[in-house]
Amino acid sequence: MNTRKLLSMVAIASVLLYSCSDDDDNPAQINEEELTTTMTITLTAGNDIVTLRSRDLDGPDGPNAPVLTVSGPLTANTTYAGSIGLLNETETPAEDVREEDIEVEADEHQFFFEVGSGLNVTTEYADTEADYPPLMGTNPVGLEFTLTTTDASTGSFSVTLRHQLKKPNDGTLADAGGSTDIAESFDIDIE
């Protein structure tokens, strides 16, 4: 009985001492892995280049809203080649999220473009999963797309990136399901 008591006391003491001994280290900093701070959509028609940018440097955890910039109006009756760049600018140098995460799993991601009422714009996908080897699928991804304007107008242009969604889908968010990585809306002028 006495030995047992002694042993248990020793065990308790050692556990207590052990657990108290290592609390001076500072915890490691975590840089959010899934963070995309900046989306830049470049619309190109010859020399006519318009960029749409959303920049949210403190991410969803931070209180600040993203800063949206649209470099200028779109030209009426023009077809633009659209390309989406994604960065995590909390790291230096900035991490290329498009290349490192989205292209690699393009079969699990898709962009959706929605045009607000009144804005005379149509979009079409200009890439498929097979554009990001070794993937071979034929479903659209949306990192590259075309945007065609008609008459002068104004309205909103929304861009949504979803992952783990239903693929193929009918091109609507409702049908695609999945989880949202990016949801942003730009006010656009067509002149």
Binding site: P27, A28, E34
Partner: peptide, 21 residues
């Protein structure tokens, strides 16, 4: 009572509850 909370950084997501004693 002594209590130690450890939030493992291997999650690669920011800690919701911090390390504490």
């Amino acid at each position: 009572r002594y209590q130690d909370n450890f939030a493992d950084p291997s999650t690669r997501a920011r800690r919701l509850i911090p390390d504490y004693d």
